[in-house]
Amino acid sequence: MSSDEVMAPPSLPTSQAQVHARPRRRRWRTTWSLRIGLAALVFYVAVALLSLVWTPYDPLVPGIGDGYDAPSLAFPLGTDRLGSDMLSRLMMGARYDLGIALTAVAIALTIGSALGVVAGYFGGAFDTIAMRAVEIFQAFPGLLFAMLVVQAVGAGIVNVILVLSFVGIPDYLRLARAEIQAKRNWQYAEAARLAGNPRWRVAFRHLLPNSVGPLLAFTSINAAFAALVTASLGFLGLGLSPNTPEWGNMIARGQDGVMTGQWWVSFFPGLAILGLTGSLYLLGDALADLADPRRRR
C-alpha cells in the first residue's frame, strides 16, 4: 500500500466528488449508444408497422420476379429462389422477429420480476426453492433449452414466444430479487409499513418502482438475445412454418444461393438481425449506465 493510497482513500469524503467522479468520455459514449440504439429500434418498429399497411409487393406471393433476381431498381434487395420480393419479405419479417422478441421479453419481465420481488422481500422457503430452481435451470444454455422444448412441444409462434419468455424469467427473478433484498430494510420501506401498507404493497408499490432501472436496462439485452434465438430457431427449421418471412427462415432459404453467387438472399436478413440485436445491445448498455446508482440522484 503506497502512501498515496493511505492519504487518498478510494472514496473521497465529499459528496460532490462522487457525483462528479464519472469520466467525461464514458458519459459521451453512453449518450451516443443511447441515441444510436434508440434510433435504430425506432426504425425497426416503424418498418414493422409500415409493413402492416404497405409493402412494395405482396411478400407471400412467389413468382413476382424470376427467382434469384439480383438487386435492381424494381427489386432493391433482389428476389429469392421462388421469385418473392426480398424487401417486402424483410419488412414483414420485422413484425415477426421484433414482435416475438418484445412479447417474450414483456412476459419474462412481468413474471420474472414479480417472482423476484416475492422471493427478495418475503424470503423464506419460496426464496430458497426459487433460487435453487434458477440455478438448475441456468445450468442449461438458453438456446439449447429453447431448441429442445420447441422440438418437443412443436413449432409455432405462440410456443416460440412462451419458450423465449421462460428462458428469460430466471434472469429477471435474480435481478429483481437482488434489488429488493438490498432495499428491503431501507427506511422508506419501513415507513411504508407504518403508513399502513400491507407487505405486498410495500414490495410492489414502493420497492419495485425504485428498482426498475436495472430491470429495464436488462430487457434490452434480453430482447437482443430473444431476437437472436428466434432467428436461430427459424434457421434450424424449428421456429415458424418455413414459408413465414421470418429472418432466420429467410437465411435458411437463401443458403443454397450463397454457394452459387446469389448472396443477397441470405445476406439482407442476416444484416437485419445484426442491426436489431446490435442496436438493442447498444441501448441496453446505455440504459445500464444510466441506471447505475452512482449516476442517479
Binding site: W186, Y188, A191, A192
Partner: peptide, 12 residues
Amino acid sequence: MVFQDPNASLNP
C-alpha cells in the same frame, strides 16, 4: 415512527 435519516425514509 419518525426515522433517523430523512434521505432514506422518504420514497424518492
